[in-house]
Design a binder for these strands. Structure first.
Lengths: 234, 234
DNA sequence: TACTAAGTGGGTACAGTGTTCCCAAGACGG
DNA sequence: CCGTCTTGGGAACACTGTACCCACTTAGTA
């Protein structure tokens, strides 16, 4: 356990002698780069080049690549303005969920970079505060409120991850979903359909309609909220 | 769009001339390594050493590290035996959810490695078939069944990710959750509590009880299932 | 049985990665 | 105006995935 443990956020407040750059600039550059070209393009060298500085100079502003990512995560969560809670907890939690999803979709690297230990940055805290306010509309029991908020957050996280990794697959394989399906269809026909080993998978492939991601997300969120309503009404 | 596109699973069936190793052995070694030392220790060189072979020899069995991961994902999903669906869809979906969670907890790298395009390996297909059977107990509409299954899967994925990344944080920082809390408590006191900017976060920190991961997971799953029940009963 | 072709194991090498170590140059307090 | 501290940033290191190549073993054929 390191004794010289200092949080990023305290160090941010300290002002420094001179600055050719600022942490904010670096973070902004990194976000722009990751948005445009994905996580794999986010190297310290690329960030430095994009920021017009030397690679190792970045380490004057940021101790780690991990720390840079932590700053990026918080910065991005500050893009959204949260309204004052309406008091209708279902509507408020929907705002939270939609907002989280929108942010993660806008910054495709965010979902995979989210860690559990709550980011203690100002923006993440503001979001957490609004989310807790929304959940607080459903119950006064703060333990229950934070449990049900966790449920919503977990669902949103999982749903967005599924949505994003489909996108990511399209990018990495260079095939759209339909192209991929037709490419694997001979294998699918032989192994899944003709073998008869996976009857419901087969039926699913043939008969199920594809919901759009919006529909799938809304359906799942509706389930979660309905379940919460029931567990709160007790 | 590559024309020479061949699935891993077809290539696996082809038998080869001689084999000092087998794909199965390599995959098993890789899984053991990743389980024990985490994703960051999973390098081709380590796998090769552990398997007692040269690094580049692995590429005779596996075209990519990504492909190795895909094989690992499927292999791990074959550890669990699925029962025959009981017909009680709530119980069956609970079995699915608990099983997915248990597998992901046993292999901490799995959750972050899951991709959306369904793994077409035999084990993943068997799991999907059971899961669809479970969901099919709730409704005959296959589109609805697969939507609600997706909701469960998304929730489970998100919940386990939260659970795992907490563990991962403990490993990477070398501090337990409690140690970390007391380490950041001065900052928390100043920025969150005393500033008064985040009243519900403050209240949460002081008053909320910590649910165990089992409790949190069960609570969330209960919400999801209750919501599904309502959306199906319509 | 001898020869050829193909497939296998694996060393070397390369382009990149995050990060540490240094040093020169500039900014600040006295 | 000087000495000290802080910056910017180049060189270098340990490490990654993997393409290329070569010697060698095997399988099939003459």
């Amino acid at each position: 356990m390191p004794q010289d443990f200092t949080l990023v956020w305290t160090r941010l407040a300290e002002q420094r002698r001179r600055q050719a750059l600022s942490v904010e600039q670096i973070v902004a550059v990194a976000i722009r780069l990751a948005d445009a070209e994905g996580t794999q393009a986010l190297t310290m060298r690329r960030v430095a080049t994009e920021a017009g500085t030397g690679t190792t100079s970045l380490y004057r502003y940021v101790t780690n690549k991990d720390e840079l990512l932590e700053l990026m995560v918080d910065a991005v969560q500050g893009e959204r303005e949260w309204p004052t809670p309406s008091g209708d907890w279902r509507a408020d939690l929907t705002v939270v969920a939609d907002g989280m999803r929108a942010t993660m979709l806008r910054h495709p690297w965010l979902a995979t970079e989210l860690r559990s230990r709550p980011t203690l940055g100002p923006n993440a805290l503001r979001q957490a505060d609004f989310a807790l306010a929304a959940a607080g509309g459903a119950t006064d029991d703060i333990t229950l409120a934070s449990a049900l908020l966790g449920t919503v957050a977990n669902y949103v996280h999982g749903a967005v991850l599924a949505e994003l990794s489909e996108r990511e697959d399209v990018r990495s394989t260079g095939m759209t979903q339909d192209e991929w399906r037709s490419a694997v269809s001979p294998y699918v026909r032989e192994v899944i359909i003709d073998s008869g080993n996976y009857p419901r998978v087969a039926r699913r492939i043939f008969e199920a309609d594809d919901l759009s991601h919006d529909q799938q997300f809304a359906f799942g969120l509706e389930c979660v909220l309905a379940g919460i309503e029931k567990s709160v009404a007790r």
